[in-house]
Amino acid sequence: MTAFWILSPVMVLAALGILFVRKAVHAALLLAVVMMSLSVLYLVLEAPFLFAVQVIVYTGAILMLFLFVVMLVGVDASDSSVETIRGQRLAATLVGLALGAVLVLAVGQVSLGAVTGMGAANADGNVEGIAALLFTRYVFAFEAIAALLITAALGAMVLAHRERLTPKQTQGEMAAQRMRDYAESGKHPGPLPAPGVYARHNAVDTPALLPDGSISELSVSRVMQARGVVRSAPALADDIDPIARQLGVPDQDPARAPETSGKSGAVTDTEEDRA
């Protein structure tokens, strides 16, 4: 029972956490906690096969599937805390509390009697015992569940599949389109500018600087702009001075200093080389 008493508060807390965390990723991680704890309880309850299944299939596969979908849908997609259905939260809480109280009281009242234990049942090994049941008494249910699983897989394929309504654009067509756009609206036909590369920093979240020192908006992803994680190039430049001082590099005349970008000064004098 030691494991139970240690794990059960963890599970309840984790489960309650699912109710209150705002991000789906956190909920998934909390669910993983609950499931892993459950697998340990299965082991305690003399169900080693289910322990393995719980860890491998449930936590390892199903929950990971959840995480995939969370990533697809958007990690940052979080619930707003405003309830849209009037009275839903209060009613749900009341009904939930009542149900929980009734269930807990009801099963708490029941005296289960002496525990038989799995000794006899698991005499030939737990996996062999379950296999024997699955392929004898529950063989039809097993077949049916297999059919269900295949059907579900097919269903998921059908649901996730998107029919292509127009023929795929070839590379040639795309190039032609690009030139057409340039001719019609002056849209730049080449690739977008690369993000900024600095002496100490080379990352997609840093915008490139144009010759006049202003920022090129096109050089960073729109998503990052929307999230507000784009770094400011002048701020990075400010960081350089204390480091240079630290290293004992004399102040450089800004006029002599190489351009922050451009091929001319890119290879010759980098921070890494100096370090």
Partner: peptide, 15 residues
Amino acid sequence: RSYALSVVGGVLLVV
């Protein structure tokens, strides 16, 4: 979720 609430309420009553 409203429908689910009804279902849970029904479960409570059945129990």
